[in-house]
Simulated assay, not measured.
Amino acid sequence: MSRVGKLPVSIPQGVDVKIAADQITIKGALGTLVRPAHPLVTVKAEDGKLKVAPANESAEADAMSGTTRALLANMINGVSKGFEKKLTLVGVGFRAQAQGQKLNLQIGFSHPVVKDMPAGITVTTPTQTEILIKGADRQVVGQLAAEVRAFRPPEPYKGKGIRYADERVVIKETKKK
């Protein structure tokens, strides 16, 4: 059995877990997340812990038990604490401004780039060169941060662009004659 799949997931106070035949619903202070239940995995909630086990002895069921356990742990963590990604803008004149559910970026193009935020995601700009994306769903937060970064990824010669706060950009040396 998967080593990750064997570990139980503790359910903190204020988090409600409902397991149906076809889906798993987790409610918490920061929202509600729903995930379809995989047919090769059985999930049980007993005495404040979620236990995940493969439904049969196949290798796919074993792999999916670890995957399902990790996804459920991320859902519980998301509805209780939440997830966040921090992006920084590097470049002269590069600015970001959060306006409600929209992110307005001025990143060296002839026009401003506007990105709409999906429901359940909040975006803030503590400074003009920092973007903070927060939400309960880890996958949506990460995907949104990747889409914003893709508008102007860091280039290798000067390092200008949008990067993750913890990202290290290796600067190339310019061509010599």
Rank of each mutant, 00 (worst) to 15 (best):
E57L: 11
E130F: 08
S58H: 01
I107F: 07
A96M: 02
A98D: 06
L72A: 03
P39E: 09
T127F: 07
D47P: 08
H111W: 07
A53V: 10
L89N: 00
N56K: 01
R69S: 14
F83P: 05
A96W: 07
K102G: 10
V79M: 01
G100I: 04
A37Y: 01
K44I: 13
T125Y: 12
P112Q: 11
V79K: 01
V114C: 03
V114Y: 11
K115T: 13
T67W: 11
S110K: 11
T122V: 08
H111P: 03
V41Q: 00
L89R: 01
D47I: 09
T68W: 04
L72P: 00
V52T: 12
A59H: 09
Q99T: 12
I107L: 05
D116K: 13
G66W: 03
A45C: 05
T129Y: 10
A37D: 04
P112E: 14
A119R: 15
V41A: 02
T42A: 14
L71M: 14
V43M: 06
I107P: 05
K51H: 07
P126T: 02
L89S: 01
L105T: 02
G93S: 05
A119S: 15
T88H: 13
E57V: 13
D62C: 07
A70M: 13
Q97E: 13
K44F: 09
H38V: 06
T129Q: 15
K81I: 12
L132R: 07
S65I: 03
A96V: 05
A96H: 02
T42G: 06
T68Y: 02
F94I: 12
E57H: 06
A70G: 13
S80N: 04
A98I: 07
T124R: 14
L72V: 04
P126K: 06
N74H: 14
A37P: 03
T42F: 09
K49Y: 09
Q97T: 14
I131G: 02
L105R: 10
V79C: 05
S110H: 14
K86Q: 12
I107K: 03
T68C: 12
L132V: 15
S65K: 08
S110D: 12
M64W: 10
N77S: 11
A37V: 01
P126R: 05
P39V: 02
G108R: 04
E46H: 10
L132M: 11
A53D: 08
L40I: 02
K81D: 02
G91Q: 03
L87K: 00
